[in-house]
Simulated assay, not measured.
Amino acid sequence: MKSTKKIIEIFIFFVIFLIAIFNSYKLSIHENQINRQKQIIDSLKQTIVEFETNSFVSSSKYVLFRNQNFETYKCDVKKVDLKFYYKDTTDRKIKSIDTLKHLVSINNKVLIFATNAGMYNPNNEPQGLYVENKKIIKPLDLNEGKGNFYMKPNGVFYITENNTAGITESSDYLQQNSKNIKYATQSGPLLLINGDMHPKFNEGSKNKHIRSGVGLVNAHQVVFIISNEKVNFFDFALLFKKFGCKNALYLDGGISKMYLPDLNRFEKGGNFGVIIGVTTQKE
């Protein structure tokens, strides 16, 4: 009797042992399936990211940020025809978006984006550095002074001959390979410096104006932003951070305009120095 009971106990233990092994095996298979599914999903996500990165050309968006309205134009400088414009072929200053729109149309092109570049003097000459087609039109200004332009650190937005973009402190610009720079405009202040906000910006500041600027998303992608209402520097810089920018430059204030037909924004006036424009061929 005792022997039979012992055999039954051993049998039950053996069955429980087999069930445990079977469940462990099933769990292992299930975990492997889950891990494999995760790998597939991660692979698909990476493919989607790579596809979006490789296919992105430009986008125009309305943005509501901190209860303030902005309009934005983001583009890949390797894939769009982005140029800086100052004078026409007769050496006359272009000054306005109207004039630029007419000039590009003569060359069978359509203006799809335009905004004023860095600051300028009363005679419509660029204030500080201006480079066009690798030629230095105005030298770098490292002087001290009053106003936003001289709120140090100020900076330079540039495009290389290889169509990569950069934003750097004015004092660091000379370290760049200037022979490789196709376009450059100097302005100030820098909004973001290597991910940090300009040290003189204060949250809640009452110093509010219409503002425009440019931010560097990566070496190929830049975003231009203009406010539709008066904003302070802190909020404006923070918006560029939300776009993933580590470096951003203030372009100008209340005189700023943006031509952006995709958003039904057809500002054509202005009395500027340099204008940044993107064109496409007429169909």
Rank of each mutant, 00 (worst) to 15 (best):
Q175H: 14
P189I: 09
S187K: 09
Y150P: 08
V156S: 03
I136P: 01
T168A: 11
G128W: 02
G155N: 05
L174P: 07
Y130I: 04
D141G: 07
G145Q: 02
L140Y: 03
K179D: 15
N133Q: 12
S171D: 13
I159P: 06
T168L: 07
I167W: 07
Q175F: 15
I137M: 01
F157N: 03
S170M: 05
L129H: 03
S187H: 11
T185L: 05
S187I: 08
K179A: 14
T168N: 10
E169I: 14
T185N: 05
Y130V: 00
M151E: 11
T185I: 12
L174K: 15
G166N: 04
S187T: 09
K179P: 00
K138G: 00
D172F: 15
V131C: 04
Y183V: 08
T164S: 13
M151D: 10
S171N: 13
S187V: 09
S178Y: 11
L142Y: 04
P126G: 00
K138A: 06
F157I: 05
A184M: 10
I136N: 07
Y173L: 10
K146L: 13
I181S: 09
N163D: 13
F157E: 02
K135E: 14
S170I: 08
S170Y: 07
G128Q: 06
Y130H: 10
G166D: 06
L142N: 07
T185G: 04
I181F: 11
Q175T: 13
A165G: 09
I137R: 02
T160P: 05
N133T: 06
G147D: 03
I159C: 03
Y130G: 01
N154W: 01
K135A: 09
G166C: 08
G147N: 00
G155W: 04
I167P: 01
